[in-house]
Simulated assay, not measured.
Amino acid sequence: MSCKVSASVLSADMLNLKAEIDKLCSSGVDMLHFDVMDGVFVNNITFGLPVLEQVRKASDITLDVHLMITDPLKYIGAFADAGADIITFHAESESNISETIKAIKDHGVKASLSVRPSTPVEVVYPYLNELDMVLIMTVEPGFGGQSFIPETLEKIRLLKKTISEIGCCTDIEVDGGINDKTAVLVKEAGANILVSGSYLFTAEKMRDAVNKIKDETRC
């Protein structure tokens, strides 16, 4: 399974977002990871629908939208209409998981479920046949630039094993503290979509950073 890099817009220069998106696309990034935080589910507030709509106009790259909000079901239609290609919501949110997955699918968007580092990965197992992707948070959700939590590797391994046993094709995405070193670890554990922010945007040459994440070891 080929590895993909999803670049976190959270680390971009928002005053020059169009130029940042162009730079990402020309550097071989596969997706843009768009973190939506409501200040309730996590202690931070980030982007909303108007910004996503403008990003969609600026590029046809896959938009990987991560809803860190209390009631994602309420907003699925709006984010789908704004241009999301993938919508991830949290198992810890207040929305019914099955209903939220169905709403995402009904809007023609890929559905993804995420868990915090402290949440057992087993909570996603009943939904694997319905999901296109599972996002394992490798830091606590809410802020960029955090250090990778090594204990999350076992969750990736367990999830990969279960996906193989079931025989489904669910992608495993990881988000938090991903650089050329931690990329090796999460890929060996079974992840195939890697979200990276600070590492990419602080790199002297972004394309080299993308290639290191993708090519350091096989997925």
Rank of each mutant, 00 (worst) to 15 (best):
I163V: 06
V186P: 05
L200E: 02
K102I: 13
T100L: 11
M68C: 03
K18F: 07
K205Q: 14
L67M: 12
F79C: 06
H66V: 06
V195A: 03
I104D: 09
S164A: 14
C219I: 10
A78Y: 04
S95G: 11
E154I: 15
N43T: 12
E20N: 13
P72V: 07
K187V: 07
Y125G: 11
L15F: 15
T62W: 11
E94V: 14
E204D: 14
P150L: 11
V139T: 03
F79Q: 01
T182S: 13
D81E: 15
L15C: 15
A84Q: 05
S8G: 03
K23W: 10
G77S: 14
P72S: 03
F34Y: 06
M14T: 12
E154R: 14
S2M: 13
L17T: 09
P120S: 13
D81F: 01
T162A: 09
G177H: 01
A78I: 09
P72L: 03
G177L: 00
N211R: 12
P141W: 01
E99T: 09
H107T: 11
D81Y: 07
G48K: 05
N43K: 13
K110Y: 13
T202W: 05
E122K: 13
M37I: 08
D81I: 00
V184E: 12
S27P: 07
A91Y: 13
V5D: 04
P117L: 05
E20T: 09
A58P: 03
G197H: 02
V134W: 04
L24W: 04
A12Y: 02
N192K: 07
F201M: 10
